[in-house]
Design a protein around this nucleic acid. Structure first.
Lengths: 198, 198
DNA sequence: TATATATGTAATTACTCACTCACTTATCAA
DNA sequence: TTGATAAGTGAGTGAGTAATTACATATATA
């Protein structure tokens, strides 16, 4: 079935992510993508000049999703602790919705083929840490979080929590609920960071 | 130059790890390994029946290194907190000595091609978490660490710390001292976990 | 309706990869 | 010194894989 280029491009990006989840990012061949969509392999090159360009489009799609989720998490008018919760919940939600994401960060296509893209993703992680740091700082100002910890260090500990849980989830058999376990551990870490002991 | 099989095998394993660091685990082809050593590609198959077996040997090499480092860290007769420090310091040291390790965890070889390899590494991470949990438990028993936190949760937070810092190091330009930064953050987390506030 | 163009196909190319096999030669023990 | 054997070679094979090309046709628009 013939489709306008825009929709076909979007379809290809979606299928690449789904395939990356099912068989791993580095097994996503142009042939596999084409078969999954129902077109010939050559048709892909009508929409993307190279396979690297295709991966770049995928990465941009993911980056936009993350940025949107962060913005949405910060849009609510809560206190800093709840904003921290929302940010990290959004991160877990994005990873759960795009399970290939952790592997994608280390995939050959993204790291080896496209250095620019690697910088983009590294920038995303840094940006996320920055957002966390801002909320942590606000929490410290408000006397909600311990003040005897460097703001940035607390942010690093929180991003590490996300990455650690995501790794355990991805490397294991995905045999637990990422979001549930992640948010549970977040509460533990938040209790450690809290200004007052209950 | 002809070498006895044992030494050649060891050489191959070493070169694979070095190449994995330099060009990425999934770019390590049998041809690249052979050229780096100075033999023909066919010679590799004199020592390993398949490429998967070669990777398994690499994994065992890494596993032995980690196990030895852990044992060494636990051999000293310190208190639980110092043992935690020693364990995590050993982990950072091993990662720094084998910089391909973080990437290896996300390689296609491990995640897609070689299920046995994946099981090996997943087992290693689980074992490490177990060792940490034991020391955390001892620290809680001794009244050195907060008792109102699940022992296992604290262990997860500590392994996450290691992984988070290692990822930031590997994905970035390796532009900071892994061990130094890691141990610094460990002290922060230990302060959060401490039973008494100073 | 006619036609230009965007979308898609079939067939093929150039290349990489893991792996095989018949053959050679260095090494070492008898 | 000689013969057995372990270690290495040269020349392949078959199975992918991205990308190209000449050709076809659906679709929108004038």
């Amino acid at each position: 079935m013939r489709k306008p280029a825009e929709r076909r491009k979007a379809e290809i990006v979606t299928v690449v992510l789904a395939l990356a989840d099912r068989i791993g990012p580095d097994r996503v061949t142009t042939g596999a993508v084409a078969t999954a969509i129902g077109v010939t392999q050559a048709a892909l090159f009508r929409h993307f000049p190279t396979k690297a360009a295709l991966w770049q489009a995928v990465a941009e799609h993911v980056a936009e999703g993350l940025a949107a989720a962060w913005e949405d998490a910060l849009s609510r008018d809560d206190g800093p602790i709840d904003r921290l919760r929302a940010l990290i919940a959004a991160q877990f939600a994005q990873i759960a919705a795009t399970p290939a994401l952790p592997m994608l960060l280390f995939s050959r296509e993204l790291n080896v083929t496209n250095a620019e893209l690697r910088a983009t993703f590294h920038g995303l992680l840094t940006a996320f840490r920055g957002l966390l740091a801002r909320e942590v700082g606000a929490g410290q100002e408000a006397g909600l979080l311990r003040g005897d910890i460097e703001t940035v260090d607390a942010a690093v500990l929180l991003t590490s929590l996300v990455q650690g849980v995501a790794i355990r989830w991805a490397l294991g058999a995905r045999d637990f609920d990422l979001q549930g376990e992640g948010l549970r551990l977040l509460e533990v870490q938040l209790r450690l960071l809290a200004a007052e002991r209950e």
